[in-house]
Design a protein around this nucleic acid. Structure first.
Lengths: 222, 222
DNA sequence: CGTGCAGTTGAGCAAATTCAACGCTTGTGG
DNA sequence: CCACAAGCGTTGAATTTGCTCAACTGCACG
């Protein structure tokens, strides 16, 4: 299994370190599979495992008392999730598609981190990257509907292999709950982006970025 | 100088650990003072120091290309800020009021963390708490204007010594830029809260929580 | 005593939500 | 194989929320 490089934007850490981490985790973890919409862990559950996402897609979320749902993060192939300081998870996690992970016991990981300094630092980098992403999420939340959806699309494209085509594993509802909009608003933005020729849709889930520069103009901020 | 306990909600760490950290930082750091609105560090500057806030108030922020400003966090007495994984700061930091800090060289802190395991863990706890707070910030951003402002007030009250009275060090603009609303909207919510008897204002900055349960009803979520 | 800044308030407007209907695809049972 | 129900996505019209623009107050400072 070859892992996609996900930490290219962090200059102080080589991709090789990340790949070394994946390799190390593979040795001490066990493979687990999930069907779509399966709960991987629940909010407030003790956080016993860390997960290395081999294939598929996962989202973390919280359900508010008014029934609304906020999605914290989408994780794609090569991402590591469930790594939390606190004893219990602050979000729930569920598979979006058919998903394969390597589940690593926290205790095993702690042992590994002690013996392997590179692994320890890579885990530290990982949480730092997570913090940075959540900060960006806050920034996204003050943008207009268009900017949020475009930002989401560009982010997904950046994380995809092709960079110009995106296969969205999640529903419109998931996207809406991620960017903090209603499902209809997300749909309208998609339609508008297609109408002005910025994107094309073969199916609702398969998006082609026809004009990335035009797309970026819709999301000039930051 | 006695430090206020800020980590009461984290059961696995005693306040004594936090106080030990403050004491240790005081030994290896140097005291620095700032006038109001002074830049403590800038976005993208190399992060050379970590700061222990002795008195006053500090905010971190980012300025977007459209001129708007997003405030990341408000730091009050006893908080530690500037602790970042990356080589350079992702936010700017400025003093809100007259402010005294202990500035600790990153390198000194690293040395200390190696020799003192308790300090090392406390720093880890610190960043974890930060991540949790930013996650809460994302949640806040999908709430209504009232819920955001009430949430902000309750949070400030929780961090204050009295719990029922708040002396806001920041302007309405700062609050607005924190919760992602316009200054007028923030002002209107304050006025409304006062009209229904949930709060009282002697000056615009001094808020008395007259009816905390009524206040909490405005912010039922989470 | 005027000037400037912080905060408040009002009226009209724009953006996103709400409510509702409808199309497309998929899967299931007759 | 077709009928039909269910889920996902899209679209339209009315409504609501928060924003924009504007005026005005109170206070601090020169």
């Amino acid at each position: 299994m070859l892992y996609r490089a996900t930490a290219k934007s962090i200059p102080c850490t080589q991709n090789t370190d990340r790949e070394a981490l994946h390799a190390a985790l593979k040795k001490i973890g066990v493979p687990v599979s999930f069907h779509p919409s399966a709960e991987i862990f629940g909010e407030n559950e003790p956080s016993q495992y860390v997960y290395d996402l081999v294939s598929g897609a996962v989202q973390t979320y919280k359900v508010l008392t008014d029934g609304r749902r906020q999605i914290g993060t989408f994780y794609l192939t090569g991402d590591i999730f469930g790594l939390e300081r606190s004893r219990s998870h602050t979000f729930s996690a569920e598979s979006i598609t058919d998903t394969k992970v390597i589940a690593i016991k926290r205790s095993s990981l702690a042992t590994l981190a002690i013996t392997n300094a590179k692994v320890a630092r890579e885990l530290w980098v990982l949480t730092g990257t997570e913090l940075q992403q959540v900060n960006n999420h806050v920034l996204a939340m003050v943008m207009t509907a268009q900017e949020r959806v475009v930002g989401f699309l560009l982010e997904m494209a950046r994380r995809s292999t092709t960079r110009t085509e995106v296969d969205l594993p999640m529903t419109r509802q998931d996207i809406a709950d991620y960017v903090g909009l209603r499902i209809e608003t997300v749909s309208r933005v998609f339609s508008h982006l297609e109408a002005v020729g910025a994107i094309a849709r073969s199916t609702p889930r398969h998006i082609v970025l026809r004009d990335a520069s035009k797309l970026r103009k819709f999301k000039s901020n930051l």
